[in-house]
Design a protein around this nucleic acid. Structure first.
Length: 479
RNA sequence: GCCCCCAUCGUCUAGAGGCCUAGGACAACACCCUUUCACGGUGUAGACAGCGAUUCGAAUUCGCUUGGGGGUACCA
């Protein structure tokens, strides 16, 4: 047995910021571990040194942590099966490759890139599927030594025998492959580093991974990997392949479609809770039909076999809606913490923390993104900027009539008493309705436009309460 | 080209032979509520890709077609 306990992993390669699709894969692994009481490990797959970078690695850490997808074992926290960075495991792979050669499952290949390119071209010209020619399969020891003496460093290829390979996928069901279609593939590059397919198997084996849950772009790697497990004499883990996330044009979600990295979404003002919740609903549905759920609730209801096996399209409408729901319901203090960085274009120091929370509280209702707050709170921090429709409204006789009275009445308002302000405004509406036949809406528009420069915004009483008497009078007097 | 995966409203999905004249959510539209925007409420519109087969009966099973996606590297 590999392990009695479920052990899953998420293995991103640091050749880019944490992609939303990778985040979803991480989520499902996390949920599965959580549900089964298993362990969840993070492994950094940086065998391709040229494309990997420290900054990307850091972004992956930060994003995963921001999402709350904390790992039990990983490069930073350690664990008994480390190291958890492939570049720190380079001494491990050659041993297993050599073992495979010794057992006759692999062989050295001295073909140059040019040789290989030629084989590819020939196959293309003949319109037949490419398979490695096995030119180096039967080289004698003398021939190999001679090649090495010439300074040629070999790669190592896995010898693929023909057979039908079947495995049961956790989400797709039974999957069949004819291995005669797979050519002998490289497991070690001539530079001494392992190829992806080899490194994953060796690591998953050594790290005692029991379930490999990943995107369906890995389906075709799976037979190769199973072959390696078998050659290594290791127990094959269970595989589960998720459908992918596609852009609205049904192509792969990429930068040209906008944000793809979790950190991009966060920068735009998406809440990590909402992001996680949304992405979970791509391919999974709650049994009670309630879609707004936190990770714990999702984990409790999670069954891996219920994952949808088809691709899903990433549309912003629902994400935006969900984000809005979270913003409306989130604890105001926490929301304020998250919102403040977005408001650094204003001098927020003129308000107390209490007042700032109050500002967020009264402006949070209609927003979908935290960055919407920048526009929506402008008139709290700066003088109003009069928009076109407001200017029009203020020009009317109706508005002038209202403001004339309001300006006088306001002296009597108890600005610190929100309820009082509320009632006084109600009186104002009632007065103009009775005496002038103005609609409540029209009365309020006059006040709102004058004070905020806009026709829309937070509750008017709250605005007056926050701004305070002095500021309100000043705005009313300004021309 | 070859191999593999997938196919229910615009989107995310429920549905595992009769409970489906196909349910929910987002978006849309209408109305209600209302000091604006919004929230909330009530409605309307909107889908089983096509064709065959199995069956008394198919969105659900099978086959083909079409469409979409993935893979086909000494990238991961």
């Amino acid at each position: 047995m590999i392990s009695d306990k479920v052990r899953v992993r998420i293995a991103p390669s640091p050749s880019g910021n944490l992609h939303i699709g990778t985040a979803r894969t991480a989520l499902f692994n996390y949920l599965f571990a959580k549900k089964t009481g298993g362990e969840y490990v993070l492994r950094i797959e940086d065998t391709d040194l040229d494309r990997s970078s420290e900054a990307y690695k850091q972004n992956i850490f930060d994003s995963l942590k921001a999402l709350g997808l904390n790992w039990d074992e990983g490069p930073d926290v350690g664990g008994q099966y480390g190291p958890y960075k492939q570049s720190e495991r380079f001494d491990i792979y050659p041993k297993f490759a050599q073992m495979l050669i010794d057992k006759g499952y692999a062989y050295e290949c001295f073909c140059s890139n040019e040789d290989l390119d030629k084989e590819h071209e020939e196959a293309n010209a003949k319109k037949i599927p490419y398979k490695y020619s096995r030119k180096c399969l039967n080289l004698t020891k003398e021939e190999r030594d001679a090649l090495k003496a010439k300074g040629i460093v070999p790669s190592i290829r896995f010898k693929v025998d023909s057979k039908e390979l079947v495995f049961h996928d956790l989400v797709k069901g039974e999957l069949k492959f004819d291995t005669s279609l797979i050519g002998d593939f490289a497991i070690m590059k001539s530079n001494g580093t392992p190829t992806y397919n080899f490194a994953v198997v060796v690591d998953d084996m050594l790290m005692k991974i029991t379930h490999v849950i990943r995107g369906e772009d890995h389906i075709s790697n799976t037979p190769k990997q199973i072959l390696i497990y078998e050659a290594l004499g290791a127990e094959v883990p269970q595989f589960g392949h998720l459908g992918m996330i596609l852009a609205p044009d049904r192509s792969k979600l990429s930068k040209r479609h906008g944000a793809t990295a979790v950190s991009d979404f966060i920068k735009q003002g998406y809440l990590t809770d909402a992001l996680l919740n949304f992405v979970a609903m791509l391919g999974w549905a709650p049994s009670d039909g309630v879609e707004i759920k936190n990770v714990d609730e999702i984990a409790a209801d999670f069954r891996i076999g219920e994952l949808s096996s088809s691709n899903s399209i990433f549309e912003y409408e629902k994400l935006n809606w969900m984000n809005g729901q979270y913003i409306k319901k989130m604890d105001i203090s926490r929301l304020t913490d998250l919102a403040l960085p977005f408001l650094d274009c204003y001098d927020t120091s003129k308000y107390s923390r209490e007042k700032l929370e109050h500002i967020i509280e009264v402006t949070r209702e209609p927003i979908t993104l935290l960055k919407d707050l920048v526009y929506d709170t402008q008139y709290f921090f700066e003088k109003p900027v009069y928009e076109e429709d407001s200017k029009e409204i203020l020009k009317s006789d109706l508005s002038k009539t209202v403001l004339e009275k309001f300006k006088k009445d306001v002296l009597e308002y108890d600005f610190d008493n929100l309820e009082d302000v509320h009632n006084k405004l109600a009186d104002l509406r009632a007065y103009f309705k009775e005496n002038h036949g103005f609609k409540p809406k029209e009365t309020m528009w006059a006040v709102r436009c004058k004070i905020t420069g806009r026709t829309r915004g937070a509750d008017m009483a709250a605005i007056l309460n926050i701004l305070g008497k002095e500021e309100v009078i000043e705005r009313l007097s300004a021309v």
